[in-house]
Write a protein that binds this DNA or RNA. Structure first.
Lengths: 232, 232
DNA sequence: AAAATAGTGTCTTTAAGACATTATCCC
DNA sequence: GGGATAATGTCTTAAAGACACTATTTT
């Protein structure tokens, strides 16, 4: 969201992004410090105006804005919800389409978008505890996004997108456990992953350590997210 | 969507509504014949511009537009998805927030909104088969809405909103079966309804016929939609 | 009594959860 | 061999699904 956007016609509405990655403390969200009024110097979600002259559609706008604000190019992304009311922006009636994006380690730029002070990864719990400090209604949007992700983890394969391209089943299980905040049974977990049939072993590739090597898996192509019959 | 809306400032984006009700042929959707270009005389979903001077927020806009276009005042309503691209409206880049609404028999006006020829309930299957005939990308929106409803019926109590306020458990089961297109086991169905605890018997009220009378139920207050642990 | 639907119970089959065992590497 | 984690198997327990039976009304 910029205040300097003066080309009235091509700017329709804003897109805000809730970008999650897995860090030391569990789920973390990328925040950007605002450099303009309103909410000057407050932390905010990365967002920007739709540009009708360069964005073919909403998803393209979300990708562009994410890339421009954070440098992230190819995340998993899905539309969350659209909020619009007279009070969320002091400048007047405001419409924003919120997107959730997930990236794995490595794709996550430590800090991007100008200088180091204006972007930061923050643990979601910490941010939510002080949700009111965020610009606009971004605290609400973060809450919505977190609820969506937590719920969807229960019945889908969403968490693969928080891992690098190649991973072991133990690593995948660990992601589920960290997002859900509870332990899962190993054999039940593997049975379910086999059922939904969305990952495949990479022949010959193993993760080695001071123990039995683990088979490395990757996402089956054309299978971005699968759904379970039942809840975990 | 009107072309005559010339007040540039307060009109931001459109809201389109997919209004479902249960008819003879199963799920039916309300369509309105367009009275202006583009797509003059084509069938379309009821929709209209957000008016920043009268709509407090998006949901309020959706309610107002539904009421104005169809006369329906108090439906179950939920936001579906927002679509925006350069091609859906020949007049230029267009943004629309789609809502799904469900109403029970009785709340459904046979025909409203001017004269009888400009609104009609149509079976979803029929309309989808000729989805390309609808104005804009409304065929796509209808497809999205139907997929959402069909999926959500599997794990939630959504179908109560297709019934009148008072109903029997057999009637409720019948709604599930008609939307899902398959039979359900009676005892399993009742067990599940008891589990989620979202309906309650109306003491003394029974539905009578030439058979054993059936207990009449109603939605428990403050419980619009509940979710199952598992899929039906 | 017959017909019809409501409502509940029983039994079989399946799946889930806890736990144990075996496997394979490094040191 | 010891330590560590991978991978799979077994057993117990709970739930789901199919089906049958009982209940209560009208005709």
């Amino acid at each position: 969201m910029k205040t300097l956007d003066t080309a009235a016609a091509p700017a329709i509405a804003t897109v805000d992004l809730i970008l999650f990655a897995l860090g030391e403390a569990g789920l973390e969200v990328l925040l950007i410090r605002r450099g303009a009024a309103p909410f000057l110097d407050a932390w905010a979600l990365p967002g920007g105006w739709i540009h009708t002259d360069e964005d073919a559609d909403l998803d393209a706008a979300a990708h562009r804005i994410l890339r421009e604000k954070t440098g992230v190019a190819t995340p998993y992304i899905e539309q969350l919800q659209t909020v619009g009311n007279a009070t969320r922006d002091p400048r007047g009636w405001s419409l924003s389409v919120a997107y959730v994006a997930l990236i794995g380690p490595g794709q996550a730029p430590a800090v991007r978008g100008g200088n180091a002070a204006d972007a930061a990864w923050r643990p979601v719990e910490t941010v939510l505890a002080e949700a009111g400090d965020l610009a606009f209604d971004h605290g609400d949007l973060l809450g919505l996004a977190l609820a969506r992700v937590r719920r969807k983890v229960e019945y889908s394969t969403l968490p693969v997108h928080l891992l690098p391209e190649r991973f072991t089943l133990s690593e995948l299980q660990s992601v589920y456990e960290r997002v859900l905040g509870r332990r899962l049974d190993k054999s039940a977990f593997r049975k379910r992953m086999a059922e939904v049939d969305f990952v495949e072993p990479v022949p010959g590739e193993m993760r080695r350590g001071s123990n039995r090597p683990a088979q490395i898996y990757r996402l089956k192509e054309a299978r971005s997210t699968a759904f379970f019959d039942r809840v975990l």
